[in-house]
Design a protein around this nucleic acid. Structure first.
Lengths: 206, 206
DNA sequence: TCCCAAACAGTCTGGCGTGACGGTAAGCCA
DNA sequence: TGGCTTACCGTCACGCCAGACTGTTTGGGA
């Protein structure tokens, strides 16, 4: 197994970045120390410092890495949507699969840290824009050129982000699933495909 | 100015918790060290440790403190809603004022940390439930007993949370304001008070 | 008035996190 | 093949953070 320098370099670099991602998910941003990453990647200290001279270098690189992973996952997930259900429902489900995955948790850790760290914020802004672009593009393909479509996609994006955050604290999985179901209906209503009266399951009362 | 022990104790305790809140907002969870809090509160090390023996004690107490502050702020904000506009619009605006305030940023820091810290999560769950209860109650008073109301309030809650998070990374203030405007319309549509065709400003095309 | 308990205060230490540094070996180009 | 670049490696030192410890003041009950 004779490898070129570039291949070797890239391999250990990837190991380190994967370890960082894993640490962000399992330990959270505050506990993601260079020593923690080093241990998870099983590389000596010097190696880590060779590839990423400072901690912020590592974190900025991990922003890129997480984004790349998310893009891969998103296109796979969105391509695997079942064709035998309402495209809108399938789309919401697909997005939710992504937004409830550990991969997105790592992104949330970085988002939150970015609030008080300009370097991270600067690194995050373009990549998030790109991810949203992919989402938007796929939505247009699925839902057609409805002028309300873009707005509904944006609202869905915010909604899923909110659900990911509140899900942290309200352990109940059922609540989230219920809200997802209702949001699907809401989206259909907003697109004029459904009657507002059917938002909740059983319209009780008057 | 002769104060009882309880008064003195409470005063310094409050100073410390305010300092913690401030640190969470300005420095973020990862950089909120005991030394940082100590300096901001301007208390000696011993005093801090007297009131909060360990760091997690301090953080758990700050969860309570932030929640209390948020409740105070919420009732004030929701009471001060202008009466001359659509109650639904006013309600969304009121919630957004809260969710875009530094007070809520501090809560987000704690939420995020809670994902990987069971003690924080345990402390957060009941207080967040209480806050949501207040919101829900006020909404019912404003919007009437529509069975869809509860769902719309929940969706609004998730939406605002999402906007708070994405707002961190997409610096553009205008985007958020636009989405708030559209969400107001969307909420009205979901409640059957508005035509789905009017979701976006100018319905261009077919 | 006496005394105890509780608030307040300052110092010290062990541990950890970061990054500097000097060194080795493997690939690459002339 | 010789030298040079680049990947890789291990140790060390500084600084900071958390919390243990001991001493001091103040309020309140007996």
């Amino acid at each position: 197994m004779r490898r070129t320098q570039a291949q070797r370099s890239e391999a250990t670099r990837a190991r380190i970045l994967d370890a960082t991602l894993q640490a962000l998910v399992e330990r959270g941003y505050a506990e993601t120390t260079t020593a923690e990453v080093q241990a998870r990647a099983d590389v000596p200290r010097g190696t880590l410092l060779h590839h990423f001279p400072t901690k912020i270098d590592l974190l900025v690189a991990s922003v890129q890495h997480v984004a790349r992973r998310r893009l891969e996952a998103l296109v796979t997930e969105l391509a695997a949507l079942p064709g035998d259900v309402d495209p809108l429902d399938a789309f919401v489900d697909g997005i939710w699969i992504h937004f409830s995955s550990p991969l997105f948790w790592a992104a949330l850790e970085l988002w939150n840290a970015a609030r008080t760290d300009p370097e991270l914020r600067a690194a995050l802004m373009p990549v998030e824009k790109e991810i949203f672009g992919v989402l938007h593009e796929r939505a247009q393909a699925l839902l057609g050129p409805d002028p309300r479509g873009a707005t509904v996609v944006q609202l869905t994006f915010e909604m899923m982000t909110g659900l990911a955050m509140t899900g942290i604290v309200s352990g109940e999985l059922g609540r989230r699933e219920l809200l997802i179901r209702r949001w699907k209906r809401a989206a259909a209503i907003l697109l004029g495909r459904r009657d507002p009266d059917t938002l909740v399951e059983r319209t009780k009362g008057t």
